[in-house]
Amino acid sequence: MQAFLIATGLVALAEIGDKTQLLAFMLAARFRRPLPIVLGIFVATVCNHAAAGALGSWLTGVIGPLALRWILGLSFLAMAGWMLIPDKLDEDDAPKPGHGVFVTTVIAFFLAEMGDKTQIATVALAARFPADFIGVVAGTTAGMMVANVPAVLVGGKLAQKLPVKLVHMVAAVIFAGLGIATLAGLGESLGF
């Protein structure tokens, strides 16, 4: 349960103002059909984060504990820095209609999530919680849905009201805390 809660909170915060959340706004504005968009985001996220979680779990079996601790600690610190860089959605990232709303959403969201902050966070969290693969993937998926469903349902009105910089700063502090705790070896005693 702990992996689920940490993953949900971190990804929900990391997703605010992220490229994929901007894509959710764009899909909602373009298609105006929330149910297939939300379902498409869910399917794309589960597929993408399951693969990322599998990679993270696999890394724990290949890399020794000390090296893994350093890699994870530095990864969390890098994520903290990355959180402070605003994302933009280019015209090239705009979904191309032609496959229906659901399929267009699945494809666009899956591709946009490749190498994204939340996918990298999923790899790191799965490596940090190798015994709770399902909790990590379910948590990162829940975090994505917490951030993106309101984006689809409320659209631009929500985007203008969120203090995105503040949310990113809070997420950066949390990632930095996880990184420092991991590097110091405190993660296990703190339950991270």
Results as ranks from 00 to 15, higher is better:
H49Q: 12
T141W: 02
M144K: 04
V170D: 00
L68S: 06
G81T: 10
T20K: 13
A28I: 02
A171L: 04
I180T: 08
V164K: 12
I85N: 09
W70N: 12
D93I: 00
D93Q: 11
G135R: 02
G177N: 10
F4P: 11
P95W: 09
G135L: 02
G17C: 11
L162F: 08
A172T: 08
G143W: 03
L66I: 15
V167K: 06
I134G: 09
A151C: 07
D18H: 11
V123G: 02
A80H: 05
P150R: 02
S57E: 01
L186N: 12
F192R: 10
P95Q: 08
K117H: 09
I180C: 07
M114D: 02
L158M: 08
A28R: 11
A24Q: 02
W58N: 00
F110A: 14
G64L: 09
P130Q: 13
V62C: 05
C47W: 06
V46K: 04
M83D: 07
V62Y: 03
P36H: 10
A172M: 06
R32G: 12
A127E: 02
G40N: 04
P65G: 13
P36A: 05
G53T: 02
V164G: 12
A124E: 07
V137F: 06
I37K: 02
I107M: 10
A94K: 14
A54R: 09
M145Y: 07
G156R: 13
A124K: 04
R33C: 03
R128I: 00
L125R: 10
F175T: 03
R128D: 01
V136F: 08
T182P: 06
A3L: 06
T45C: 11
V103I: 10
F109D: 00
L158D: 06
A138C: 13
